[in-house]
Every structure is written in C-alpha cells, then in structure tokens.
Design a protein around this nucleic acid. Structure first.
Lengths: 137, 137
DNA sequence: TAACTGTATTAATATATTTAGTACAGTTAT
DNA sequence: ATAACTGTACTAAATATATTAATACAGTTA
C-alpha cells in the first residue's frame, strides 16, 4: 500500500497517520472505502498490529476514518463539521511555515503558486466533482 | 525568556529550536544579539544544560545562530546563502499543510490572506528595513 | 461454527530523550 | 596568573516513548 522508513526518527504510527491522511485528502482513498484490517496491513508492512491500530485510532480521533467493530475501518469524507480545532492547528502550523519560508528567501509569489499547485493537484485527483471548498468569494 | 511544555510529547530541545527560530525569524532577537549561555538558560528553564546545548547545536547546523567558544552564542541574520535544503523541507511541509487546510474547508482566499498577514507581521517587527524577500515581481 | 473484523490489556523490549557529573579549551577582566 | 565566565565533549544513569508480543473479548459475515 505504501512505504515506511523504519529507520526514521519519526515514529511509525505517525508516518502511517501522515501517509493515510494524504491519501484521504487527495482522494486516492475514496469515501467509505475500506482500509486494510489492522492485522492484514501489519503483515503487509511487517510491523505489529498494535502500531497500525494506534495510527487508525489517531485517524479516527481526527475524523479522517471511522471504525466499526467486526466490519473494519473506512474512509470518512463527510468532515467539514466539527473540525474547527483541527483548522486552528493547521493555520498555526501554516503561519510558522510561511514565516520560515519568507525568512529563507521564498517569495510571496512562490508561496501563492504553492497554493495554486496544491489546489490543482486536488482537482485533478478528485475529478473536480466537488469544488465548493475551493471557491474564491 | 519563554515558556516550555515539559509535559508535551514534543521533546524539549525541539520546542526550544522552534521557539528560538520564531524569535529570530520575527526579529525579536536581533542580528548578532547574544543568547543566554547554555548554563544560564538551563537554570532559568530548570532543565539540564545538555538539553540547551542540543538545541543550540541544531540551530547552528540550520544556520540560525553561531557559537564562539569562550564568548557565547549569537543570532545569525546573514542566511539566504546555502539554505536550499531547508527551503525544500519547508516547501514540502507547506504543501502538506495547504492540502490539509483545503481539505478541512479553508478557502484559497483565506490561505492567501495568511501569507499577507504573516508578511505584514514581519515588516512591522523588522521596521521594514529590508523588503527584498517580499517583492512581487 | 469458523474466520474474519476492531478493541483492550499486560509485559517485555527497543529506542529516544533528559539528566547528572566531569572535564577541557577559549575569553574576559582582575 | 587567577577567577569566572563561555562553548564543547563525553560517559553513565535515569526517564519517557515507541514497538513488539501474546492473549483475550466482542461484533460481523457466511
């Protein structure tokens, strides 16, 4: 399904969370799509099922997936509801990154281009079927 | 000098690096300003000097400060030179944050406003004495 | 019932972080 | 030269965090 860096200083479960988030955000994993079970994915990645569960649990807390005992874990594309706390976090992180980028000499134009590029990438992978979140106005 | 969250899962030295970076980026700490010595800051924050040194060393590697044996550690505002690796890192992190923000429903307009706001903050705290990195052309 | 699924718990292990203590070398002022 | 500061290096111990392992329980599906 994807690659992990077992030698990284970044914990495996965090890598999993980040990776799965990106797949969900970019619609590679579609709404209600079933994720591999904790045991199957653990075997595929040659790591312990508990580590997978820790990642899935975190993703569920953050609202990216939902899990049903006996059935499995599924992608949650509803979102947009009570994500205010998450939005605040992301915005704070963005501010830090932006000021650091500016400090390192990245121009405002380049930063704006980054936004446009990211937006385009999303439109392409999502087939542009829902553009409400990227309206300008 | 600042606050730390000793209960955070984020290592103390990483908090220190982030915090000092922000102070340097936003020019709260000015060029060639002397930072507290590892021992003094350690006592102020009630943590071990080795932890301070680890943070200072990381900041020196990243080019934010420079240290002179016997004299102290000082803010480095020259930068802009060989920061290509750092720029690449920040850009990748920015992409992730932007796509997550878009996914959570933050509009492109809002993201662009974040850039403008951050730019303004920097101009104000820096007295606008050097605007070369924020030209739009 | 058998074979899946998520979830929980405990213990052991591995890794990372922090502390503690000591030491050495360069700077500054006396 | 001495005293008091500075950064830096090193080892060992203690603490915190992450990961594995093994087991168990409950819900789902065929």
């Amino acid at each position: 399904m994807f690659e992990l860096d077992l030698r990284s200083r970044k914990p495996i479960y965090e890598q999993l969370v980040d990776r799965l988030k990106q797949l969900i955000i970019n619609n590679v994993l579609e709404k209600d799509e079933k994720l591999p079970s904790v045991r199957v994915l653990a075997q595929q990645l040659s790591i312990n099922p508990n580590t997978i569960q820790k990642a899935y649990r975190e993703l569920e807390i953050q609202g990216y997936i939902y899990s049903v005992k006996g059935k499995g874990s599924f992608v949650n594309h509803i979102m947009m509801a009570d994500s205010s706390a998450e939005i605040k976090k992301v915005k704070e992180q963005l501010k830090k990154n932006i000021s650091e980028a500016l400090f390192l000499g990245v121009s405002v134009e380049e930063l704006e281009k980054l936004i446009t590029e990211t937006e385009v990438d999303r439109s392409v992978t999502r087939g542009d079927e829902d553009d409400s979140s990227s309206e300008r106005g």
